[in-house]
Amino acid sequence: MLKDLFPKKKRYATISPPSTARDKSLEGIMNKCKRCGEILLSKELEKHLKTCPNCGYHFTMTAQERIAVTFDEGSFQAFTDSLVTENPLEFPDYLEKVEKAQSLTGMEEGVLSGIGTIAGYKAVAAVMDASFIMGSMGSVVGERLTRAVEQALDRRVPMIIFSVSGGARMQEGIFSLMQMAKVSAVLARLAARGGLYISVLTNPTTGGVTASFAMQGDLNLSEPGAIIGFAGRRVIEPMIRQKLPDEFQTSEFVLEHGMLDQVVHRKDMKSLLATVLSLHERGGRG
């Protein structure tokens, strides 16, 4: 194993319960819509699955929230592991950054995975979380995604990945890049065996994640107004010396250009997933 090349420094970080900064803001009574400025009560926001009832703006969801609104109540069983992020490049201050993200989010790393039912239909899901170092992909994220797909393979159930990512985890350099190949390789295996893979690209999905598993779905779905792209606006604008239109790289733009199957309001996502799963119930697996 490659990891044997590196001195193992196991860190059994105590996970602080998710009761920190993020939850406090959720408990905050008032939220301002980022698009229309409407002041929304938290309860109202929750009721609308964190979308603005006034303008339809989709707020970012944590991985936990996404699981809660997607899976049938009480059906989701998380896959557990004890993967610990290391610092293969000996990148300055990297592990401190990870620890900070851990205490901020209460997550060990930027993706959660497990199995559950959606309107009764079984699926394995891996859900990325934007608040963990911008949903960037390091070795642990890549390994967790890969293991989740392997679970879908073993259990012969469909795979759903909810992506949200700023792209690569720069502090893991080439290892981050190679997670694109690793996750793609396991999805290639799933595809070869006739397994269904649904990719849901949420706001934002960019860089290496877009250039790998997020765009490899049998279905690629997204939510309104989500930013989806390979190179960021800030990279492209100076390159082409012109200002890009506002709708550039929105999910609607990407749908129009043929890279997505549907852009779906969050309130309709669960039933769409259920329909698609039901249409694959006898999917030619095995």
């Binding site: 194993m1 490659l2 990891k3 590196f6 193992k8 420094k9 196991k10 860190r11 059994y12 592991d81 004890s82 993967l83 610990v84 992020t85 290391e86 293969p88 070795s139 642990v140 890549g142 390994e143 890969t146 893991e172 290892f175 190679m178 997670q179 190949a181 690793k182 390789a185 396991v186 290639a188 295996r189």
Partner: peptide, 14 residues
């Protein structure tokens, strides 16, 4: 697949 499956550096505790 086996070649790429192995790539990644992480610890694995209990």
């Amino acid at each position: 697949f086996d070649k790429y499956r192995r790539i990644g550096v992480y610890g694995e505790g209990m």
